[in-house]
């Protein structure tokens, strides 16, 4: 699971109000090279919740992202590289996503988050 996916997900258990961001419990993190597409990155930058993204990247052991970011920084290649690396190249292979409100763990196995709810959670 890449951090782009993480940034889109929340815990949708019935009754949960603040299901975002899910806390990352990392057991195994992989890095995979992905070709950079700056247009795509610029588009995604607008949609990303930056704070949650920085936090998640720390959870994966990557600390090179600035605390705050605005779209003017997209002109810097250095920033773009870091953003690209954190968004698309870091993979959570094994671990879990934890609901911030209830502590429910959504397991991530072989890179696939299992977001399906139990019967009593829907």
């Amino acid at each position: 699971m890449r951090l782009l996916t993480h940034n889109m997900l929340s815990s949708n258990i019935k009754g949960v109000v603040n299901g975002f961001p899910l806390r990352i419990e990392a057991e195994k993190v992989l890095e995979k090279n992905v070709e950079m597409n700056s247009d795509f990155l610029k588009k995604m930058f607008e949609k990303i919740e930056w704070k949650a993204f920085v936090e998640a990247s720390r959870g994966m052991g990557y600390t090179e992202l600035p605390e705050e970011a605005d779209s003017s920084m997209l002109d810097s290649d250095e920033f773009l590289n870091r953003f690209h690396h954190a968004l698309l190249e870091l993979h959570l292979e094994e671990g879990a996503l934890v609901c911030p409100e209830t502590g429910r763990r959504f397991p991530v196995r072989k890179g696939i988050p299992n977001m399906l709810l139990h019967e009593d959670e829907v």
């Binding site: 996916t5 940034n7 949708n12 975002f20 992905v34 709810l117």
Partner: peptide, 18 residues
């Protein structure tokens, strides 16, 4: 290029953040 993301989710109750 590999998919950006694959996940297990229910289309009836999608887990997208608010």
């Amino acid at each position: 290029e590999m998919p950006i993301g694959l996940l297990r989710a229910d289309n009836n109750l999608p887990p997208w953040r608010p």
